[in-house]
Write a protein that binds this DNA or RNA. Sequence first.
DNA 1: GTGCATAAATGCAGAAACTGCAATAAGCTG
DNA 2: CAGCTTATTGCAGTTTCTGCATTTATGCAC
Lengths: 200, 200
Amino acid sequence: MVKKTGLRELKKQRTRQALIEAALRLFEDKGYESVTVAEIADAAEVSPRTFFLHFQAKEDVLLANTDVRVDLALRAIAERRPEEGLPEVLVRAMDQMIADTSDNDLSSGLAALRSRLATSVPALQARLLQRYLTAQAELALTLQRAFPDKLDTITASALVGAVVGAVSASASAALRRGDEPAEVRNAMREAMALVARSVR
Amino acid sequence: MVKKTGLRELKKQRTRQALIEAALRLFEDKGYESVTVAEIADAAEVSPRTFFLHFQAKEDVLLANTDVRVDLALRAIAERRPEEGLPEVLVRAMDQMIADTSDNDLSSGLAALRSRLATSVPALQARLLQRYLTAQAELALTLQRAFPDKLDTITASALVGAVVGAVSASASAALRRGDEPAEVRNAMREAMALVARSVR
DNA sequence: GTGCATAAATGCAGAAACTGCAATAAGCTG
DNA sequence: CAGCTTATTGCAGTTTCTGCATTTATGCAC
């Protein structure tokens, strides 16, 4: 979490951004599968080897900055006010993840492309699901720590699993149906409300 | 679902089994990552090319026969008796997936190795999660068809997502904690009970 | 049984993802 | 300036996975 400010770090982030933007553009153009890492690196004017210095795998270039939302949710749980009950905290945390960030053009374009490709590209779908899983584990852990007398580890996991499962399943159903972003968000909120009942 | 009985089919299943058993043995021995597909094929006395004729990817050899459970759950939903309500059907379907099959040594060994490796091998974990997702989609669809006047597509997805999410999350938490299979199953059942409340 | 269609298995060549290692170059630190 | 750190690079190599043509074995019709 420490912000390095040096010139070296600046350049590093530059090449990282260049890679992301190049990948984004190429994927839009030719489709995910038919773009090679070599091409991305080429378009970003770096060596192919450098790509893997920034991203563990080809898919990860599309999952950049995904952690931010999870961090928000984690903070929402950790910073619970004493009067807040379990359901309120959980709902607030999930709201953080559902809320559209999209502050700048790049990240919104990235998010849009990501959700489009997540349904059609198996490799990406798989990676995304993995992220969900680790996020779930983190959420469960902090939730259990926030309510140590009320939740054991297993129950916390089940709870988080239920909420995340419901929300993401309804989202993917809405997406598959061709809903607009606003409708998708609506579906997610309803799913959350549906499950929130079992929290009491 | 048609049972082909010819000699040709028999031999095909033989090589398939040989591949599975060879893979199983090698994975136990040397670990998943350090076993190549070429080695597996070699141990099964077939060509490497043949491996990919039977399995789409290296991971899939460990996910053989996974569909069976899902099919059971699907049937449990489709064959609902008229007097059964939504919660009963859902619980019965999930029970089908939780129940340990393990009729023969091979499949139980396979299941055990699979759950062990699912936590440590990212590629396998990813594939497994993908299976869950498609299974969820199928479950949601048949559930919605079984209760067409009670559930819309989104709600059905959310419901199934919640149940599967809770059950699998609690299972993975129990596994991570080092629980015995029986305890894991217990955790899954409790998670299901927890979520079943939101079904009403 | 002979001939033909079908399908499994094979071999080969190659694309693409990804890794290890050693070398370079550029920023940082005293 | 001197020395350390670190991003980047090039190269060689492994592994997964695919396309294609070929062989081999089975099934089927006659």
